[in-house]
Simulated assay, not measured.
Amino acid sequence: MHPLTKDLISHIQDKYQLNDYVLHESFYHREKFHGETQYSFETCWFPINHGPWSEDESYPDGTIEIQVDTVTRRTTSINKHGDVTIYSLPEDLRDSDTQTSWLEQELGMTFDQEFMLLKHQDSLYQYVSCQNGIRLFPGFFISLELTDDGALDFFSVYGTPALSNKYPTESFSLAPVQITPIITEQIRFFSAPGDQQRIQAHTIEEIFVSQNDSLTYPFSDPDTSSVAMNEIVT
């Protein structure tokens, strides 16, 4: 076994106290975020005393899937199957202080300064990256789902931190009236063939506007979001 693989397995097993579990499978995963390649290590743990199971069936009750970043070792996904207790996690995450404190520990970031709550509905909580309370793009998206008694059922972090504190900050003063002319320039009307008559429609080019409304930036960078192959596809 490769030393990195062995080290990551030990890290996950020790962090989440998986002494009553056996590693069923593990593999590396590569994904591209905003032009940067990220590598993660995904593991699947079965309870030692799980019942009969075959490859054609879903994972046995009690299975835990955990994914970590190969560089930072920070957990990017936890998925539980059935009634599972992970002893290293808080028993009840419904309390906002307990939940944000645990997230700060997992992410290594400060609540309301580097990430903030986006949505809370029933047992679902969603967070996004921010800079002093202002949402960032590109950034990352955090999702938590709790059981009826407040235990963690699912956790995931998607994306990468967008900025760091080396960037200067200034008071936000951009008003909608300032960017109205710029917005109207992004709307394009066109007609398309329909079943019986042509359809009139419009499209909007998404952009960012600078603080002094003198510059615009594309929503996605064409240099990193796509690759020009210059080949004829048949």
Score class of each variant (00 low, 15 high):
Ser226Asn: 07
Cys130Tyr: 11
Lys32Thr: 13
Pro47Thr: 01
Ser214Phe: 11
Thr100Ile: 01
Asp83Arg: 04
His50Glu: 06
Thr184Gly: 08
Phe172Leu: 13
Leu103Arg: 01
Arg74Leu: 06
Ser96Trp: 08
Ser101Val: 04
Leu117Phe: 02
Gly35Met: 05
Tyr217Phe: 13
Asn230Leu: 13
Leu163Met: 03
Phe189Ser: 07
Val68Gln: 02
Tyr167Pro: 08
His11Val: 08
Phe189Pro: 01
Asp69Phe: 03
Leu124Asp: 07
Ala201Cys: 03
Tyr125Trp: 06
Gly139Arg: 03
Ala201Thr: 00
Gln200Arg: 10
Glu205His: 10
Phe208Thr: 06
Gln105Val: 06
Ser225Met: 10
Gly133Trp: 02
Lys166Gln: 12
Ile48Cys: 15
Gly62Glu: 02
Ser225Leu: 02
Ile232Gln: 09
Ser191Glu: 02
Asp97Gln: 14
Gly82Ala: 01
Leu215Trp: 08
Thr63Ser: 09
Pro181His: 05
Gln186Leu: 14
Asn49Tyr: 11
Gln211Ser: 10
Glu114Ala: 07
Leu174Glu: 01
Asp69Ala: 02
Leu89Cys: 13
Lys80Ala: 01
Leu4Pro: 11
Met116Ser: 14
Ala151Arg: 06
Glu55Gly: 06
Gly82Ile: 02
Lys32Gln: 05
Glu145Thr: 08
Glu57Trp: 14
Thr147Leu: 00
Pro47Ala: 05
Gly62Lys: 01
Gly139Thr: 00
Ser10Pro: 12
Trp102Glu: 11
Ser26His: 10
Tyr21Lys: 00
Ile207Trp: 10
Glu231Leu: 13
Val68Glu: 02
Val22Ile: 12
His81Arg: 05
Ser123Pro: 09
Ser26Asp: 05
Ser40Leu: 12
Asp97Val: 15
Leu152Gly: 00
Gln186Arg: 15
Glu104Gly: 08
Phe189Lys: 08
Leu146Ala: 03
Ser171Met: 11
Ile66Thr: 02
Ser214Trp: 14
Ile9Gly: 06
Arg30Cys: 08
Glu104Asp: 03
Thr180Ile: 13
Gln211Arg: 07
Ile207Ala: 01
Asp149Cys: 07
Gly133Glu: 04
Phe208Arg: 12
His50Arg: 10
Ile183Thr: 11
Ile207Pro: 01
Ala162Asp: 15
Phe189Met: 13
Gly62Leu: 03
Asp69Gly: 03
Glu57Cys: 09
Lys6Gln: 12
Ile64Leu: 03
Val84Asp: 04
Phe189Cys: 04
